[in-house]
Each structure stands twice: as C-alpha cells, then as structure tokens.
Design a protein around this nucleic acid. Structure first.
Lengths: 162, 162
DNA sequence: GGTGAAAATACTACCTG
DNA sequence: CAGGTAGTATTTTCACC
C-alpha cells in the first residue's frame, strides 16, 4: 500500500474518481453495476475500492441517519474562542470535544474563533447541561457563541469530485 | 410503510437503535454479525433495516471520502448574512447554495447569521471565484465571514444514539 | 486488468407463536 | 404482526491467466 494514513494526496485516475462518485451516493451499489458504468470488470472495480480503502481515500462506510427521525431534532453550531493558544491546551480541548457523542463534528479554524462544533441534541435542556460541562466549567474557554439550526438545506456528506 | 418522508419521529425500539449504531460505524457489517449482536436472526435484522430505510430513518448509505486525499484540501466555514428576511429571497439562496457542488453542507440558522456553509475546495483561488459568484455578485447577501479550517478534529457523520 | 469458480452474503417464501 | 427456518438469488472474493 502506498500510504495507510497521513494526509498526503493519493494518485487517483478518472476511473477512481468515477467510482468514488458512485460510492459516495450509495456504497451498496453492486460492483457489477459500477463496473459497467466505468467500463471495467467487477474484480477490477473491487481492487480499486480495496486500494482506496487501504490508502484512506475511503475513510469509512456509513449509514446516514436522519437526526430528527431518531429524536435528535436540534442541531447547533458553536463557535468557541479559547483563552490562550498554547498547544497543550488545544490538545486537551480536542480530546474533550472528541469524547462527547453529542459533538458530531469538530473543526479547528483560524481567525478570532478557534473551534467550530456541530452539536446534535434531543432537547435544549440537554444542550444546557452540555454547555456547562464543555464551556462554563472549562477555564480554557474564553467565549462561545451558539447558532441554532432551523433547516438543513444541504446535509452534505459528499465531497465534490473531479 | 408508516412514513416515507416528512420530519415526524419514528418509533424505534432498543434493537433498532442498536442496529443503527452498528450501521453508522460500518454499513457493510454482515447482517449475520449484526444479528448475533442484537440477539436476532439475520432476516429479522434485514426487515428492520428495510423498514428504517423506507421510513427515512436511514437516509442513505455512503462511502466517506477524505477530502484531503482527493486534492480537496481546503475546508471553509462561511457565515452568510442576508439583506432582508423575505421568504422568496431565502428560497433563491437555498437553491443557489444547494446547486454548488463545492458547498458541501448548508444550514439555515437563527441569530445575526442566516446561513452557515461548509465549503470544500482545491485552492484558495477556486474559493475566490466562488465568493464572487455566491456573495459579491449576489445583491441579497449583506455580509459574509470566512473561517478557514486548519484541522478536522472530528469528521462526524454519525448521530449520537440512545 | 480479465475470466470463471468458490465463498459469503442478502433476500424471499413459508411457517410459527 | 414480529420472528425463525430453509432455500434461492446475488454479490463479493479469490485463483489463475
């Protein structure tokens, strides 16, 4: 394998991208159907998929769940600003945010904001408990701003390819 | 089927949630293995999965792709504030943002910000072209703020269950 | 990368409580 | 109506070219 993890770029040809495009929409698509779409045999497709999984291009295979349907109706965006910029403090924050299941996505960003969190909860009461634990009781957090999601226009989990 | 789409909540028992938890991590897990995990037979699991797909609890099945590995190294968060709050203008904005492949996720939020966009591009030059088209040349956009993602701590596409 | 056979898996019909 | 069983069809996977 060329590169198991790491952030380096992997060489992908047009066929690989075409396969990814299909798998991104529906990874249950039979290799047979993918094969005829990209003018290849099923095993050839299979080998390419395997390689992309090994190199980390395909990071995982997941069923996409509608949060509202499982009673997790509330999505929140939280911009977090930290007190200092010490590396150690960031590691702590990363570990903390990662460990919370309600924190669906967490990004470290530039600018006056340090972290952006996408949080999914059942109720606002649940979120308030969370804010206490993550922000108010966290001395490293200077400030945080919450934006409440009213509508998910595009649920995006797909990466634009090509 | 109880409810094909719509945002109503679906009745799910402990077993359904256990199945979802597994499929969210890896939807290629054989029904046989899921079955023994939840103490059921494979066809029973199969029927439950089918029902959850029909009711929209499972919205889709996707391969998760690492943007960096396909040359889409740059993730940006854009907060967009609109000029007015007319419904028609929002519909236009939704359509516009949805139609752009680089806009991976788009949410309508409350507060002084109206939309949050998560944009994935290859280069900053590509983003600049996009900003012109989406924001500068769009009279409905009052203001926008871009936050550049430095690190994706948690790539979250999973919904906390239970 | 293709071919063909083998193994694993998903699906269906039918039966049972 | 939900689950189990057994058989069938599909799909994945492997050896070989």
């Amino acid at each position: 394998m060329r590169e198991k993890s790491g952030s380096g770029r992997i060489e992908l040809d047009k066929t690989d991208l075409a396969i990814l495009k299909i798998l991104q929409l529906d990874n249950k698509t039979p290799q047979r159907r993918i094969a005829e779409a990209v003018h290849l045999s099923a095993p050839a497709v299979q080998r390419r998929i395997k390689r992309m999984e090994e190199t980390g291009v395909i990071a995982g295979n997941a069923a996409l769940i509608d949060p509202a349907k499982v009673g997790r109706a509330i999505t929140l965006f939280v911009e977090v600003q930290m007190e200092s910029e010490r590396a150690e403090m960031f590691d702590d924050a990363k570990r903390l945010f990662s460990s919370v299941p309600e924190v669906q996505q967490c990004y470290y960003v530039t600018g006056d904001v340090d972290f952006i969190l996408i949080v999914v909860v059942r109720t606002m009461a649940e979120y308030e408990v969370l804010t206490r634990r993550l922000f108010f009781e966290n001395p490293n957090v200077k400030r945080f701003r919450t934006l409440v999601c009213m509508d998910r226009i595009k649920a995006g989990l797909t990466v634009p390819l090509g």
